[in-house]
Amino acid sequence: MTETIPLADGHRWHDMGGAAAGAVPLADHDFALWEKRVDALMILCSAKGHFTVDGLRRVLEDMPPSSFEELSYYERWIASVSQNLVEAGVLTTFEIGERMSAIRERGPTYGDASDG
């Protein structure tokens, strides 16, 4: 069995079919509201033609291999949705950063900071 994905050969980390791995983790969790909102943002923005699932995947795949372990599924997704919207000219990085700073001033939890 392939012990590690041979990145030096051009094999990309997300392309993991056949690699060695441990037991399948069978625990599951319900999705949080913010995770469902990320999912909804992706579906709505792609339905409106701002980017495609292919663009979503490209940005996910271009993340460093460690991101798969260090970030959760929807953390990676919101990073990719944001980048795709910037590439599409819908949002700018400056306005995202500016708004994020303002949001952090609203309170310490998601419930405090999100008005929805």
């Binding site: 050969d9 094999h11 990309r12 392309d15 079919g17 292919d54 995947r57």
Partner: peptide, 13 residues
């Protein structure tokens, strides 16, 4: 082939 970038052909195949 082993191209760079976004590809939907799995490497193991």
């Amino acid at each position: 082939d082993m191209p760079p970038g976004h590809i939907r052909t799995p490497a193991y195949l």
